[in-house]
């Protein structure tokens, strides 16, 4: 399976993502934001980081970069696209997934391990996943997911909420919400379910001795689902 990771000026999780994808069997290529053509890929990943120094709004500049025209076309023709952290912010700014990511509710940069609940398995990213609760890592200043009431109704009706922040037993409530996101939303899909944006970093959870293995579970499952 072939994957491509896009590097924007200021991306800093692009190589971690490359390591993770390669470890679990993807043939990965790194793609520069100023390129126009995407290599033939089964999965495109927009990595985390601080593209363009988070100027104007996080992800807003990167969403207008040259390669994004190809990424948007790829997504619109059904290709799998995943945006992690800053990649999620780029996805919302490009309109590929609904909503926006606001500054964290308590104005603090959050860097810690969290748990997410996977309720929605009717998509390629989480289909066949054995575990319902995964431990991932978050590191962001603008991860407070927000959308209008109309949009919220639409994404709920279309089953587009991919993952929720929860405690280790899978309970979602205000106390466990790290950043103020509406409904504890940590990740969201587009209507067609081929584009996933999420704040947590699975690529930081691929080694038991360093962090944890829930990222490994996610990537292995993803590869099997694409095969």
């Amino acid at each position: 399976m072939k994957s491509s990771v896009i590097t924007f000026p200021g991306s800093n999780c692009d190589r971690d993502m490359d390591v993770a994808l390669t470890k679990f069997g993807f043939k990965n290529k790194m793609v520069w934001h100023n390129d126009q053509e995407l290599p033939k890929s089964d999965l495109i990943v927009l990595p985390g980081g601080f593209s363009y120094g988070d100027y104007l709004r996080c992800g807003s500049m990167a969403s207008k970069s040259k390669i994004m025209h190809s990424v948007i076309n790829f997504a619109k023709s059904g290709g799998l696209v995943m945006g992690i952290c800053n990649g999620f912010q780029i996805l919302v700014e490009s309109g590929l997934v609904p909503g926006v990511l606001l500054r964290n509710k308590y104005l603090q940069f959050i860097c810690k391990n969290i748990h997410v609940k996977v309720d929605n398995k009717e998509n390629t990213f989480f289909k066949n996943l054995d575990k319902k609760v995964l431990e991932f890592h978050i590191a962001h200043n603008e991860g407070n997911y927000f959308c209008t009431n109309d949009q919220l109704k639409e994404i709920e009706d279309n089953n587009q909420i991919a993952i929720y922040y929860c405690d280790q037993n899978g309970n979602t409530n205000d106390q466990i919400n790290p950043n103020g996101s509406i409904k504890n939303i940590a990740g969201i899909l587009n209507k067609e379910k081929n584009v996933l944006g999420m704040m947590p970093h699975p690529e930081r959870m691929i080694d038991q001795s360093l962090s944890g293995e829930d990222g490994s579970i996610f990537f292995k499952n993803l590869l099997n689902n694409i095969k």
Partner: peptide, 8 residues
């Protein structure tokens, strides 16, 4: 197109 995000 760029300066404002009309959702918010």
């Amino acid at each position: 197109k760029l300066l404002a995000n009309l959702v918010i």
